[in-house]
Computed example of a mutant assay.
Amino acid sequence: MSIRAGEVEGPLGEVLRVMMASEPVDQERSAAEQREENAQLWRASLEFVVRPAPEGVTTEDLEIPVKGGTIGARIYRCEGAVGTHVFFHGGAYWLGSVELSDIHSRWLAKLSGVAIVSVDYRLAPEHPYPIPIDDCAEATAWLAANGAELGLDPSSLSVGGESAGANAAAVVALRCASGDGPRLVAQVLSVPLTDWLDAAIYEAEMDPRCTPTAADITLARRHLFGEAPRPEQMLAASPLRAVIPDGMRGIKTMIMTNQFDRLRDSGQAYAQLLLREGVEVTTYHAPDIFHGGTGMTALSASACRYEAVYAAYVRETHRDPHCYGSCRSLGAAIWVK
Rank of each mutant, 00 (worst) to 15 (best):
M1D: 12
E7H: 06
V8N: 01
E9R: 09
L16D: 05
E23I: 05
P24E: 12
P24F: 12
R29H: 09
E36Y: 06
E36M: 09
E37L: 13
A39N: 13
A44G: 15
E47T: 13
F48D: 15
V50L: 08
E55V: 09
V57H: 13
T59L: 05
T59G: 04
D61N: 08
L62P: 10
P65K: 11
V66D: 14
G68V: 03
G69L: 06
G72C: 14
R74E: 01
R74W: 03
C78L: 04
G80Q: 06
H85A: 13
H89L: 03
G96A: 08
G96P: 03
H104G: 10
S105V: 03
S105M: 07
L111S: 13
S112F: 11
V114S: 05
A115V: 05
A115T: 07
I116S: 10
D120L: 13
I133M: 02
D135K: 10
A137T: 01
A141H: 01
W142P: 02
L143H: 12
A144I: 00
G147P: 05
L152C: 13
L152K: 03
S156Y: 08
S156N: 10
S158R: 08
V159F: 00
G160S: 13
G161M: 04
G161V: 02
A164W: 00
A169T: 04
L174M: 00
L174C: 00
R175Y: 00
C176K: 00
L184K: 14
L184E: 08
V188H: 08
S190R: 14
P192M: 02
L193A: 01
W196K: 09
A200S: 14
E203W: 02
A204C: 04
A204V: 15
P208T: 05
P208A: 07
A214R: 07
D216T: 08
D216M: 04
L219F: 02
R221E: 10
L224S: 05
L224G: 02
G226P: 05
G226E: 06
P229R: 03
P229D: 01
L235W: 06
A237V: 01
R241M: 06
I244K: 03
D246W: 03
D246F: 10
G250P: 01
T253E: 01
T253Y: 00
M254K: 06
M254P: 04
I255Y: 11
M256L: 14
D261I: 03
R264W: 09
S266H: 12
Q268Y: 12
A271G: 11
A271H: 11
E277Q: 05
T283H: 11
A286S: 15
T294M: 15
T294G: 15
A301F: 09
S302H: 08
E307Y: 04
E307A: 09
V314H: 07
T317F: 00
R319P: 02
D320H: 12
G325A: 10
C327L: 12
L330N: 15
G331N: 02
A332I: 11
A333K: 15
A333L: 15
V336Q: 10
K337G: 10
